[in-house]
Design a protein around this nucleic acid. Structure first.
Lengths: 283, 283
DNA sequence: AGCCTTCTGTGGTCCGACCACAGGAGCACG
DNA sequence: CGTGCTCCTGTGGTCGGACCACAGAAGGCT
């Protein structure tokens, strides 16, 4: 059993007693490694900042090859769960980091590239999600201003994160710089929208927004030439941004929601981004 | 150069001329492979249903080892972009599939496990996103009923997908089965909520909802014992579900949104799921 | 005491080998 | 001539061993 040159569907490995969910049979070796890490994560034995065991040791422990362990770690790395570094010392090795934004963006970006996510769907998703986030933000802000009364459902926006709104405003100031290239402007714009989500203090919403934005960044850039007038458009966007922030600060959820929807829809409609990627769809 | 036993930061490989975005330097070999596939995906040279080149050939083409290629493919597989199969014939090999749901769920689930996504944030995200989806659905339905007038922004819900609403209703009927175990009931419940998102015909929203649900499935199950009365709760959930569907069919976006929010918030509040995972947070 | 050299551990990469598998080609037989 | 079986081939899956680059840590020298 020691040097078993196991083929595809062999050696159930009998090491991991399957935590609780029989979801995946883990027939493949790399999956064993992946699930092992997930289980340890779930059990709280592995937390952000902790080191994963060295690849060689992990391989020995699980009875799989280092290659398989590496494949699992690679997945975790792309998903933003671990960070790997060569060398020695406390900063080397595979370390749990749990930075969801990157992973989320990667998934969405790749699926847009692979035609699993039509650009139109991403745009529409923004139209559905972003206004809701803005409204959520506005409600939270209104509640915070009125007093620290605690409603248990969907009201928690810690004041600490509220500084993101200020950061968002700072971005708006930066966007007022006269001779800004479209690419630069849109980069700031992207950061503004993500900062808005960040202001909710919700990691999931933030990562989702980041993913949505990143996944179509390329298409947004490509569509700039479609605009009738970059000058007019950017001026309008700047103005709309201010209005959105004001609505949120005023605690007017309905207004905030409507403004965001109009803002996002307006830009995409004007830049005709949806049609921009319709290359050779007819067949 | 042929048998160059390249170390970590060596051999820029000079093969891929960097498509257009200098985002990642691709210093690592596996990243070269991953970006190569992404570029081909983006260029439309690779579409769902197509085969990836055999691993050995891809390795040779890119000037990297098969191991590195495999790591890239592994990532694509976990992300739901390709499906691999052994053997020969048209069904074997790595095939582009673009099924985002699985990948999305994996990312979210792992990040919840890795404490990058607090359960409370996932719950809150549902509270923000789901009502918005329901409202979107209700508006689309009202619009479809009134007539085929086309508003360009956020109104597109093809009638074909509308059948998902019927499928959702069928799930509701299934949930009326008397002696349903909580696990079975909640599985149907999960499918109902995903079916709702599906009814929007939006792949991104669907995948996101699936991810949100899947990522906390375990916690939802765990929290069932916290309920004062499973019987009363399940009865209420069933009733609320019907109400939600009715509101959507009636085209009342405000009502649909409010009902969904109350539904989701009510359950999570009653099951105290957020506190359920607060194991040893104080330190 | 401080600096420099060496050692060690770690990820990164590559190579060559073998296994299991599923079609497909080709042959033998009816 | 058609049918069925057998062998071949291509493909992913896995393994083990090797070497490189790197960054601390340990230890010795000045």
């Amino acid at each position: 059993m020691t040097t078993q040159q196991a083929g595809a569907a062999a050696t159930p490995q009998a090491g991991t007693p399957a935590p609780m969910q029989p979801a995946a049979p883990a027939s493949r070796a790399w999956r064993i490694a992946l699930e092992h890490v997930e289980a340890r994560l779930l059990a709280g034995e592995l937390r952000p900042g902790d080191h994963l065991p060295p690849e060689r040791q992990l391989a020995a422990d699980l009875g799989v090859s280092r290659s398989s362990v590496r494949e699992a770690i690679r997945v975790l790395e792309v998903l933003g769960l671990v960070r790997t570094a060569t060398g020695s010392g406390p900063n080397a090795g595979a370390i749990i980091v749990a930075s969801p934004d990157g992973g989320m963006s990667a998934v969405m970006r790749l699926h847009v590239a692979g035609h699993g996510f039509p650009v139109a769907d991403v745009v529409e998703a923004r139209l559905v999600v972003e206004p809701a986030i803005a409204a959520h933000l506005a409600r939270a802000h209104a509640r915070n201003r009125r007093g620290p009364e605690q409603t248990d459902a969907g009201a928690r926006v810690d004041p600490g994160h509220m500084s993101s709104l200020h950061r968002a405003s700072a971005l708006l100031d930066a966007m007022d710089t006269p001779d800004l290239e479209p690419a630069e402007f849109l980069a700031l714009d992207a950061r503004f929208h993500v900062a808005l989500a960040e202001a909710s203090g919700n990691t999931v919403l933030t990562a989702t927004m980041a993913g949505l934005r990143d996944s179509i960044e390329g298409y947004v850039l490509q569509a700039v030439p479609n605009l009738p007038s970059w000058w007019a458009t950017s001026a309008r966007l700047r103005s709309e941004h201010r209005g959105i922030v004001e609505a949120i600060l005023a605690g007017d959820d309905t207004d905030a929601s409507r403004r965001v929807h109009a803002h996002v829809a307006g830009y995409y409609s004007e830049s005709r981004i949806t049609q921009a990627q319709e290359h050779a769809t007819g067949s």
